[in-house]
Nucleic acid binder design. Sequence first.
DNA 1: GGGTTCATATTGGTCCGATCACTTTCGCAT
DNA 2: ATGCGAAAGTGATCGGACCAATATGAACCC
Lengths: 233, 233
Amino acid sequence: MGQERTPVTHRAVEQVKAMIAQGEVGPGQRLPTERDLAVRLGVSRSSMREAIRALTTLGVLESRHGAGVYVTALRPSDLLETFSVLAEVSQGETLLEVLQVRRMLEPAATALAAARATPADLERVGDLLGRIDGGQDTLGTDTVSADLGFHQAIVASTGNATLAAVNEGLSSRTFNARVWAGHKEAGLAAKLREDHERIHEALTARDPDAARAAATVHVMRVERWLTAEGRAG
Amino acid sequence: MGQERTPVTHRAVEQVKAMIAQGEVGPGQRLPTERDLAVRLGVSRSSMREAIRALTTLGVLESRHGAGVYVTALRPSDLLETFSVLAEVSQGETLLEVLQVRRMLEPAATALAAARATPADLERVGDLLGRIDGGQDTLGTDTVSADLGFHQAIVASTGNATLAAVNEGLSSRTFNARVWAGHKEAGLAAKLREDHERIHEALTARDPDAARAAATVHVMRVERWLTAEGRAG
DNA sequence: GGGTTCATATTGGTCCGATCACTTTCGCAT
DNA sequence: ATGCGAAAGTGATCGGACCAATATGAACCC
C-alpha cells in the first residue's frame, strides 16, 4: 500500500537536519561521535558516514579528523560554497547565462556599496585596484586574483553576506583568467582598467547611480567579449 | 617537508571531476561500477562511495540502484539544487539578506520576461495567477504552490535557466507559507493580489519598465512585512 | 515469429569489524 | 606549576559479506 521506500542514508541526513532545526545542536557546536550517531539513528556507521559526507558537502557540517563532527556557522558563505561548481563546470550557453545574472546583480550591488561602504571598505577596494595593474606585463595569478578580489570587496561592502556569497559563486577564477588573457591579446586591458577606475571613483564619490552605470558597462563589456570570442568552453 | 596530505576521498572526487572535465565521460553517460572505479583510482569501495556521495550531493552525479552511476545533464538546475538549503535554513538577518538579493534579481528578471516571454509562457503565468486566488479561504498548499509557481514561471520566461535556478534557490516554500499566513492575518492578501495582477498586466502588455516597477513593489512589500514581523525564524 | 515470464547476472545499498592517523586529554616526572 | 609523553578518543580507510533493485537473456506460450 503505497509505502515509501526511502534509503537509509537519506533518512539519516534528514534526522541530522532535524536535530539542527530543532536547536538540539547549534552552529559551531559538536555532534555526537559517528559511532554514537549511527547507533542513535539506527544505521550502520558506513551509512552514517555517507550522510555526514553529504551534509559536509552541503556546508552544514564539518568533520575534523581526530576531533569530531561540528555544525558550521551556517553562514551564507558556508552554505553557498558548493555554488561555485556551476561557474567552474559551465561552458558556452550557460556561461552567458551566468554573466547575464551578474549583469543584474553587480550593478545593483555596486550602487548599494556606494551608499554603504565604510572608509575601511573603500581603502581595501582601492588597494586591490592598484594591485590589478601592478604587474601589468606578468599576468600572473596576481592580476586575476586582484581582479576577483576587487569585485568581491565591492560586493562585500554592501554588508550583505548572502549577496556576497551568491556573487562569488557566479565568479569563476578560470573564467576570469581567460578574459584577462583575451583582453591582453586584443589590447583591451586598458578598457578594463578604465572600467575599474570609473567604478572606484563612483564609490569614493558615493554616487550610486554612477556606480550602477559603471558596473553595468563593465559586465556588458565582458559579456560582449565572450559572445565575440566564440563562446567555447 | 611541507608535503600535502590530502584525504583519499578528496582525491577520488577530484579525479572523477577530471574525468568529466576531460570529456572521458559526458553528461548523461554512465560511469564504471563503484567497484571498478575504486580499483582504478586505487581506493577502497567505501571511500569511493563517499566520493560518489559528495558528487551526487553537488548534482554532478546520479546513482541508480541496480543500474549504475551516471553523470547528470549538468544543467544549472542540476548544479544549483543544493542551493535551496540556504533559503530553508536561513532565519532572521540572513532571511532579510535573501530578500534583498531577490529585490535585485526579480525586477530585472521580470522586465526581461516582459520582452522575451512567449505566448505559451504568458498563458502559463496567467493560469497560475488564477490559481493563487482560487481557493482564497482554504489557504491550502495550493495557494502557496501557485504563488511560487507564478514567480518561477515568470523567471523561466526569460529563457535563462541559470537565472531561474538561482531565483528558485532563493525562494523558500516554508517562508512563502509564513508570508501568506501573515498576510491573511493582517488582511493584506488583497495587496498581494494587486501586486500579482499588476505584474501580469505588465507582462501581457510587454512593458519592461512597468514589469520592473511592479516586481520591485512586490518584493519590497514582502521585505517590509518581514521587518515589521519581528524577523523571528 | 512475437511476446511474456522468470531465472540469473549485474550493480548500487547496507552492514560489520578491523586498523590507521590525527587530536585531545591526562598523568607523570621535572 | 610546567613540560612532556603515553593513552584514550575520534575520524579515515580498508576489506569483505550480504541485501535490494535493475538489467539481461533464455525458456516458454500463443
